[in-house]
C-alpha cells in the first residue's frame, strides 16, 4: 500500500484527544506528520502521510470522532501578478501561511505551512490565491 496523504481538521472540542495515538495503536498505521497546527480549545489542522493495511478503517474512525478528512491532492499557489499585498487573507489563514512581513508590509505565502483549507481562495478580493490539482 503506498502512503496516502490526508488533511485532517479537528473541531475545538476534540483537539486535545489522543486520536493519532489510536491510529497507531488500534489500526496499526505508520504515521508521518507533515504539518500540524493544534492548539488546545481551538480548531486544529494536520497533514498526515498514512501507510498500513487498515488506512480506510483508520480514516473512518477519525470521521466518527468528528474529524474532517480530505485527501491531499491539491495545492494552493499565489498568482503574484494579481496579489496587491493588501493583507485581507492574513487574519483568515488558520496556519499563518499567509502573513505580513515587517517592516516591508509585503504579504508572504509559505506553501510549506499551507494545509489547503482554501479559505483564502474565496476571501482574497483580488482572486490571487488559486487551487492547483
Amino acid at each position: 500500500m503506498p502512503p496516502s496523504k490526508v488533511v485532517l481538521r479537528f473541531p475545538a472540542a476534540i483537539a486535545d484527544k489522543p486520536i493519532i495515538y489510536r491510529l497507531v495503536k488500534d489500526y496499526d498505521l505508520m504515521i508521518n506528520i507533515l504539518k500540524a497546527n493544534i492548539n488546545p480549545h481551538k480548531e486544529g489542522m494536520m497533514v498526515l502521510e498514512v501507510t498500513g493495511e487498515k488506512v480506510e478503517d483508520g480514516l473512518d474512525y477519525l470521521r466518527r470522532q468528528g474529524v474532517a478528512v480530505q485527501p491531499l491532492t491539491e495545492e494552493i499557489i499565489r498568482n503574484e501578478e494579481r496579489c496587491t499585498h493588501c493583507g485581507a487573507c492574513t487574519a483568515i489563514c488558520p496556519t499563518g501561511a499567509l502573513y505580513f512581513e515587517r517592516p516591508s508590509m509585503l504579504v508572504r505565502f509559505d506553501g510549506e505551512a499551507c494545509v489547503v483549507c482554501q479559505l483564502c481562495v474565496r476571501a482574497c478580493p483580488m482572486k490571487a490565491m488559486e487551487v492547483r490539482f
Partner: peptide, 13 residues
C-alpha cells in the same frame, strides 16, 4: 485580536 488590512500599505508606499 489579530489585525489585517484591506488597503495595501506596500502599494501605498
Amino acid at each position: 485580536v489579530p489585525t489585517a488590512s484591506l488597503s495595501s500599505y506596500a502599494r501605498a508606499r
